[in-house]
Design a protein around this nucleic acid. Structure first.
Lengths: 344, 344
DNA sequence: ATTGGCACTCGAACTGTACGAGTGCCAGCG
DNA sequence: CGCTGGCACTCGTACAGTTCGAGTGCCAAT
């Protein structure tokens, strides 16, 4: 029953509320937007919006505030992304130019995003699960110490020192190296994880067999770390400024930032639209303990598949700007990582 | 002019204020502590303490609150560390048992400290500056890609992928490996940093010389990262709960946590007493932008020298408990790292 | 369908008052 | 000389009462 104009009124309410942080009344809508109708008419529309639970009044005689459902309608149907300014575009470019490695790139990504939006920025690492193991190297540091290095084709490298139960000489190490390499290189991380399980089975007793079993365990752990989704974040400090935006405290947000796991799940489970954009609003995050926070994110393309970058902030956030910023950064990131892939 | 009993009154004020979070009056001191004198007498003592600026009254007729100077006197002369409970000791042990590597150990350290104290926990990494480079390994991933791995005897490992300007075959790599190894292994990180500067000088032109220069740059960066002091933290979320403890906002603290550099300097510049304990209180941290925060820390012993663990919280914190917790964790850490050294 | 008018609601801001915790000071006591 | 009880005074807090104004819902008129 909500008319077209009614939706425009909703849009106006969301925009004004985000800007002023105060409940918006019919009068101020008439003043600030040119609807060409009187305040009384707007009031009628607002009554309908309230019936639909898209807006609510904090108390009997005050202006209206969008509900979470209202924000949802706004984001889905009403929001048009605000294109970034030239300065913002150049900021992204200069921030992300010439990163030292993947870690560096991810850190810079969240920094620029938090700078652009003033919110907490989040970025998923590209997944290594489908990356291929290209090298396994064993470096003997001491007779009973081996450095195990794993390299994937997606830029992931990991290393760990193994302390062996018995000393090995160079030829033993060579045997180990050959065996591991034959079994595991070329496999995807996922396949190698399965394969490594069976590696130490069967024969036992010789020093080399013992070592293989030990290494299999360590390599398994390293592979698990590769498979594990990771998250980088920046801008937690901005939350302190937004404190009054949260009815409760910012504690759940800080906790989520520190734990990472929750946010990782949340980011993974978001549903993107056809443009690769996603938003999760207020109570939709209740299951994650974040009923007062919203998260917007954009997919980006990396060798291992798509991953997401986005920002987290109060429900009352500037969705068009934040979505636009996330999308811009995601696009730039896709470009960088594709270039990286091309040069490999 | 402050009498012995006056100091005991100061101690009582600090203790009660930390506990109740309310200005403490002469009456409540008489009630809660057995001084054996009347409230009026306490009031006289309090007047003297106020003359010395060890306590202050928020407004004319209210109880007193310790000043930063008062806390300082309390910490220096009055505080007796509260020994940890058995449960706390076992918590430390079980948390820190059998870490996978140094990173893991540091992370667990700050976790257990934040759990024990309910404050933000900070830990400096042991310094690698005096560690020795034991290995340099080059792994050729592709004709124009080399994985450079550096290993120190203090548990530090770093790796980076170098993209070469020209393809190299295995024999070229062997030459590189031999040259780098001869020049750098056995050196301390500090020495190697100087040595690596001169590495690419002189001859140029051949593929190997070009590669050496490139690798020198990369190794220099990696060594710089080794030398860089690092910090791990946990418990930022606890700040949200302590919010009302900060007159201003918690923003500066969150910012410091995110930046790390400031906290690193602060931790480095603290002055320890003869027990290896240090405290920096309130306005003493003004230069670091943290005039409302206190930090207590304890030295621990690691192969590369001493480093610090501690906690950060509001000026009004429980110094005896926090100092005791930091000391206990530091001692355990020293033991672990010395054991680790012994087994190497 | 839109509008102007009007009565009504309710929070914010301000005032005044009473209360009580806590102080400073002082005369008296051991 | 240090300690004590007493007393007047200060000031923040809590509570109640008041006003003010923004904003609403409803309705009759257009």
């Amino acid at each position: 029953m909500v008319t077209e104009r009614g939706l425009q009124v909703l849009r106006a309410i969301v925009q004004d509320y985000v800007e002023t942080h105060e409940p918006v009344g019919s009068k101020s809508i008439v003043d600030r937007h040119s609807f060409g109708v009187s305040a009384a008419t707007i009031r009628n529309d607002m009554a309908l919006l309230e019936d639909e639970e898209l807006i609510a009044a904090p108390h009997t005689s005050s202006g209206r505030v969008p509900t979470d459902k209202g924000y949802r309608v706004f984001v889905n149907h009403l929001a048009q992304l605000r294109p970034l300014s030239g300065a913002q575009r150049t900021a992204i470019e200069s921030f992300l130019t010439d990163p030292a490695d993947l870690d560096d790139l991810m850190v810079r990504t969240v920094r620029v995003l938090t700078q652009l939006t003033g919110q907490v920025a989040l970025a998923q690492y590209p997944s290594f699960a489908r990356a291929h193991l290209t090298h396994i190297e064993l470096v003997s540091l001491a007779p009973n110490r081996l450095l195990v290095v794993l390299v994937t084709d997606a830029g992931g490298v990991s290393q760990r020192i193994a302390v062996l139960p018995a000393d090995l000489d160079e030829s033993d190490v060579a045997v180990l190296r050959a065996r591991l390499s034959a079994q595991l290189t070329g496999q995807t991380v996922r396949e190698a994880t399965d394969r490594v399980q069976t590696l130490g089975e069967g024969s036992e007793g010789t020093r080399v067999d013992q070592a293989i079993r030990l290494l299999a365990g360590i390599i398994g752990e390293e592979l698990a770390e590769f498979r594990q989704e990771r998250l980088v974040m920046a801008g937690a400090a901005t939350l302190a400024r937004r404190e009054q935006d949260f009815r409760g405290s910012i504690h759940p947000l800080l906790e989520a930032i520190e734990e990472q796991v929750t946010l990782l799940r949340l980011m993974s489970e978001m549903v993107t639209d056809e443009q690769g954009l996603a938003a999760s609003i207020g109570t939709e995050n209740e299951a994650f303990g974040l009923p007062e926070a919203s998260i917007v994110a954009s997919n980006y393309l990396a060798p291992g598949g798509t991953a997401r970058v986005g920002v987290m902030g109060p429900t009352r956030m500037d969705y068009p700007s934040n979505l636009a910023a996330a999308r811009a950064v995601a696009r730039y990131l896709s470009r960088l990582l594709d270039e990286d892939e091309a040069s490999r």
